[in-house]
Each structure stands twice: as C-alpha cells, then as structure tokens.
Amino acid sequence: MTDRTLKSLARLEVIPRRTIYLFLFVACAIPFLVPIRLPLHIWKETRSAFDVTSKCPPGKVIAISSSWVSGSQGENWPQYEAVVAHCMLSNIPFVVFAVDADPMAPQMAEIINQREAKRYGKVYGRDWVNLGLTRGAPLTMGAIGRSVKTVFQTDFQHTSTEDYAKLPLMKQVRTVRDFYCLWAVDYQPDLNWVVFLDPTGNLPVVFACAGIVSPTFYSYVSSGQLKGLMVGTRGAAEYEELLRDTYGKRFDDRDLRGNKLIVPLAFGHLVIIAFIVAGNIGMAARRRQKAAEDNR
C-alpha cells in the first residue's frame, strides 16, 4: 500500500463528529420518507411476555405500572402502545398506575389509552382505569398488593375508586389476587415489583424496559422471576408482529411506533457499524504508516 493511500485511510480514524451526526440524521430520515419493511426475528423473551398476557382468564385484570415519561418515550411509548393494544384486542381489562415516577407519567399513558380505546370501542372505567401516581416504593408496592383502593383512593381524574357507577371495573379490583399479571413499563423497571407486590411470588411479572438496561434483566428471565421481557423498540416491534399474526386485520397498527421505528433504527445501526469499521481501518492504517516511518 502506498504512503498516499495509507495517509488517506489514516484520516478515517478521526472523522469529525458533525459528519457522523449528519450521516446518522440522513440515514435515519430516509425510512420515514420512503416506506421500507425488513424481516423481524421474534425473540424468546418477547414471545413469553406475549403468551403470559394472552392467557389472562375472564374475571382477572392486568396491572400495568407505567412510570415512563417523555425522557424515554422513544422506547417506552411503542412498548406501552403494544401492551394496551393487546389488552384491548383480547378484551382484557387493565388498571394502570405510576409509582415513584415523573408526574407526567399518568398523562402520557392516558394519551395512548384514549387513542387505542377509540379504535377498539373501549370505555374508560369499564375496560380500563388510570389510577394515577403514587410515591413510596417499595413499601407502596406491598400496599398495592394488599389493598389497591387504600393506596389509590381516587383515579387520576379524582373520581373515587369506590364510585362503581363511574368506575365499574374497580368492583373487581381489590388486592393482588385480582391481578393476573403485572406489566412494568419504564426506562428501568423496579425489580422490587418481583419481591414486594406479591410476596408469595405467584403473580407473573413482565418488564418492558429500555434497551440500555436490558442486559441486567435477562438473568431474571432465566431464573423465572420475570415471565417475559420486552426490550426497547425492538421488543415493541416484535410484539406488534405477534399481534398482527394473532389478530390479523382486527389489529389496527396505524401510527403504532414499534414497526415504524425499527427500520430507521436498523439504518442508524448500519451507519454506526460502518463508522466503527472505518475508524478501525483508520487506526490500522495509521499504525502501518507509523511503522513504515520508523523503519525508514
């Protein structure tokens, strides 16, 4: 390799960050403008999460701890969308609450609840209840398990949880025994849900978390403490795929973000991989260049 080529390649080691940002923006924007679909492999832990939710028997309620806000909506929004769509498609009633979260959390969840309810003809109070925000984990988790209505005396709109005319669903929500499973959707869901909500350990717990923290949760899936795991946007896209396979045309995927974001995500990853390879080529070229100079 000539000195000139080595010198050119060595420049790749220090690509200006602005160039990287520009490439990243352009690569990620393309799939938003030109519709592209990529095949999707469904991971075992996403399927387990789906299976657990699907098996909810009549008379039981799914509890969703939705403690995410705008800071992590890039991943948690599509995840929560997928879970709510699943509950509404399967006619599974659910209660959603936030523990030790940003005050915006119940409102973020409710935006999605309302939109999905319009699609599937669901009614607030009968098919779902948003219990709002509370503080004091992990003690509150145990308290929710013992008596939901003691912790949440009103829903997020300040309607009493004992007002069964407005919130008929709350008639069947008393303790953890009325829950079929718990979904914790958050940037990093609290592992104390596994220990405190149901001390007997019989309640299946499923997490939907950001990709960055997911490696810490895999071991809990393996040990059976978590019955499923939805990892980042990828997990949400896989979950949507499972909903599509199961419910066919009944599943309304307009504007759902999982599949919308997964292709730009893949493009972004390709750009990053390309820059990592380029950086390594640059480093190798610089070393060679230096060795050649030393030999002279």
Partner: peptide
C-alpha cells in the same frame, strides 16, 4: 458482556433520536 451493553446503549440512544426525528418529519 460490555460489548452487549454498548450495543444496547446505542439502540436506546438511537431510539430517542428517532422519536424526535419522527416528530419533526411526521
């Protein structure tokens, strides 16, 4: 293991960027 963490970190940060990009475009 740290490599796997890094890969997931990239995925999360990228998702956050995409969310805003989607807002700006759509």
């Amino acid at each position: 293991g740290f490599g796997a963490f890094f890969g997931n970190t990239v995925m999360t940060r990228m998702s956050f960027l995409l969310d805003r990009l989607m807002f700006l475009i759509d």
